[in-house]
Design a binder for these strands. Structure first.
Lengths: 164, 164
DNA sequence: TTGAGGCCCATGCGTGCCCATGATAGTCCA
DNA sequence: TGGACTATCATGGGCACGCATGGGCCTCAA
């Protein structure tokens, strides 16, 4: 589970330390995949072998000739960098990805549950501010609370007991 | 279940003892997540792995590109501190969260059923006073009583018997 | 020969772990 | 019913390990 936000830095050799909690979330594997987040946020997105396996299964659900499948394969699978984590926990980010996400010097890692993101810090604060204004809208929290209660009730019905 | 309110303090190293009943509510896990309460109350909100798992399921219910999902991921998942409880029951609160919630010295923990909150004591009393005036309004208790009776009747219909 | 990448060692700082101490409440017995 | 004992919990502080980071050397390819 990728949670929280961590600071990091790209060193003179283009190397980046993956935050230790994220390495733990990768399940001890020393392989990471990194690609451009497809939502236009300008960040990079990353995940481990487990996520890639999930993507593989997801793609298998889609018709072989569908444009959706083709687009995902091209923009995520083909566009991913397949990186090896060295024994001090670092990877070398390819230059083209760094340029695409405007990364140099200080960077931010943010957890997204199943994946994580790598940000230019300023872009991240901007994104944060935008998201905060959405969260402040009462209908956002309402919608989340409604979905949350649905999940809880489903759990309770399945006899999985209470939270906490 | 997180119930009741407890006093606490931040020590010189930025550490805070999680009240023992809340630790018990975390189910023996030594991992806590803490983030800014998204309701503008100025408190921090906290929960355990179980709550995060519920949030993960809830997010999975929401469309991948929906602004709600993105906002919650940014403002809760990414904004959370992923804290480890040491064997005396303490965590180190990150400075940015302390600043955001105006915490230093004495603090208050308040139970919220599925999660708990961490308060600046003065803000908490203010909040308490505001809430008390709302509770005093007859329509508040009416609405609560109506919902309560609906739940009781649903239970009775399901043959789950009486309230202890 | 040179530049880039992979691998290894060195270091400083943060924080996680462990010790001890003090306070409080709950229990047991006189 | 009162007092002493004990268990649990909050708190303070020291120490060492883990993590992020910097740099050197070797290898391979252009």
């Amino acid at each position: 589970m990728f949670v929280s936000t961590y600071e990091g830095a790209i060193d003179a050799k283009g190397r980046v330390s993956i935050p230790a909690p994220f390495r733990a979330a990768l399940g001890g594997s020393n392989r990471v995949f990194v690609w451009q987040a497809p939502d236009g946020s300008g960040a990079l997105e990353g995940g481990g072998e487990e996520l890639m396996e999930l993507y593989r299964e997801t793609l298998a659900e889609l018709p072989l000739q569908s444009p959706i499948r083709e687009a995902i394969v091209t923009c995520i699978i083909a566009a991913s960098a397949d990186l090896k984590i060295d024994d001090t926990g670092r990877v070398k980010l390819p230059e083209d990805l760094c340029e695409a996400a405007d990364l140099s010097g200080k960077i931010k890692f943010s957890g997204q549950m199943d994946s994580f993101r790598i940000w230019n810090p300023e872009r991240f604060s901007l994104h944060q501010m935008r998201m905060r204004s959405i969260v402040n809208a009462p209908e956002t929290l309402d919608a989340f609370a409604t979905a949350y209660n649905r999940v809880r009730q489903r759990r309770a019905a399945a006899g999985r007991g209470e939270v906490g």
